[in-house]
Design a protein around this nucleic acid. Structure first.
Length: 393
DNA sequence: TTAGCCTTGAGA
DNA sequence: TCTCAAGGCTAA
């Protein structure tokens, strides 16, 4: 099994996008990943042969040292630092779960070492979302990277062209990251452009499957890529926040809750525009002094990416997102007396955020002594001055 | 046990 | 009256 290595990328395993996945059972996949991780770990511990960087070993490419990748270098990644910075977390999304102690390398070095520029990971319409870290809007040609295309109509793309640049409205109102956007109709193009616009399937469907595969391997540079939208991980490297304001849904959209992105916000809650459910979640988390641990290393990116649950945000990341978008723990009030009671029970002290996540990804409160009432005044009024304390809203 | 919805209550 | 926060309730 491990004799299969992708000829187009570094994957030391067969996978959907570049090679047919021969065995698709999840345990087999896990075993492959573990095997790959062991090899990477082995090289990480072999300092004498570490060939680049101090942080990460050379990836296990499956090719002998010094061998050239069959594909020529065709893209200059060196001038696209910003793109690397915005996309590198994708790899962290995947790798830390395998080699948690190793940060992912600079992708330029990564590619330079390997001497190739092709994608490393691709998303598939049906598999794990492996993403090329170097491309914001990566390209994939099904015929190129999925030789199963054309076989028994398996994965034959009926949706030929995807438009990467979905607007936020489309993204958040479609509810699907893979929503297809039709390109200009073919009949509106001249013959040359028509040919260029042909999908891989249209070009090679008349060939035998072997020919298709061979063609797809040898004619890579001239392919018109098929675009898939990137499930962009909203992660800000500088702050390690998993939320970017520009990725929040526009106000008034159907899914403008800035936390879950899947529900209509019904107002400002604790300083941010959220739905009632997320507000209740935030309030319960603070008031009950709960803490959560993300099993994905705080890389849950979105609450409603797909229907598989893979990207469904966990409680830890949901809470982190609440804080990231500006929900204020200090706006969570003390527990009130139960409605049946007379209210004679004095309220417990207000819970501060430092008790919740001490020192974690949240700056110390800029408490305005004149705006934040002391506990006696809070107890007196039964409710602290939220509006004063939250002057930005 | 938790999430989400509903009701209640306080303040502007 | 409106907004927003807390508590109650209930289905999952």
């Amino acid at each position: 099994m491990l004799g299969y290595y992708c000829i187009n990328c570094i994957m030391a395993m067969p996978h959907f996008t570049c090679y047919p996945m021969i065995l698709s059972e999840s345990d087999v996949t896990v075993a492959l990943l573990k095997n790959m991780a062991e090899k990477v770990d082995l090289q990480a511990n072999n300092n004498g042969q570490q060939q680049w960087g101090q942080q990460f070993p050379p990836p296990f490419t499956g090719r002998p040292p010094g061998s050239q990748h069959p594909e020529p270098v065709s893209h200059d990644f060196d001038n696209d630092l910003a793109r690397q910075q915005t996309t590198a977390p994708f790899m962290q999304h995947f790798f830390p779960r395998i080699v948690p102690s190793l940060p992912f390398p600079d992708f330029t070095d990564y590619q330079r070492f390997n001497g190739f520029q092709r994608n490393a990971f691709f998303p598939t319409p049906f598999g794990p979302q492996f993403v090329n870290p170097a491309w914001n809007s990566f390209q994939i040609s099904p015929a190129m990277h999925n030789p199963m295309m054309g076989m028994d109509n398996f994965n034959t793309p009926q949706h030929a062209e995807y438009n990467i640049k979905q607007s936020l409205d489309e993204k958040f109102e479609s509810g699907s990251e893979m929503k297809a956007v039709k390109d200009e109709p073919m009949e509106n193009l001249d013959s040359k452009k028509q040919n260029e616009a042909k999908t891989d399937h249209q070009r090679y469907s008349s060939l035998s499957t072997d020919k298709q595969f061979e063609q797809s391997r040898t004619a890579l540079p001239s392919f018109t890529p098929t675009f898939y939208s990137v499930p962009v991980a909203p992660l800000d490297i500088a702050t390690n926040n998993t939320f970017k304001p520009e990725l929040s849904p526009p106000p008034g959209s159907l899914h403008d809750c800035q936390v879950c992105l899947s529900t209509h916000a019904n107002g400002l809650h604790f300083g941010a525009r959220t739905c009632a459910a997320c507000a209740a979640f935030f309030r319960r988390t603070i008031s009950d002094d709960k803490s959560y641990v993300c099993k994905r290393n705080q890389r849950c990116t979105n609450a409603s990416r797909d229907g598989t649950g893979y990207r469904k945000i966990c409680r830890a990341c949901r809470m982190k997102r609440c804080v990231d978008i500006g929900m204020l723990p200090e706006n969570v009030q003390h527990k009130r007396a139960r409605r049946e009671s007379t209210g004679s029970t004095p309220p417990p002290p207000k819970i501060g955020f430092d008790n919740f996540f001490p020192g974690c990804f949240y700056p110390p409160f800029q408490q305005n002594s004149s705006a934040v009432p002391s506990q006696p005044s809070t107890a007196e009024s039964g409710r602290p001055s939220v509006t004063e304390n939250n002057s930005s809203t």
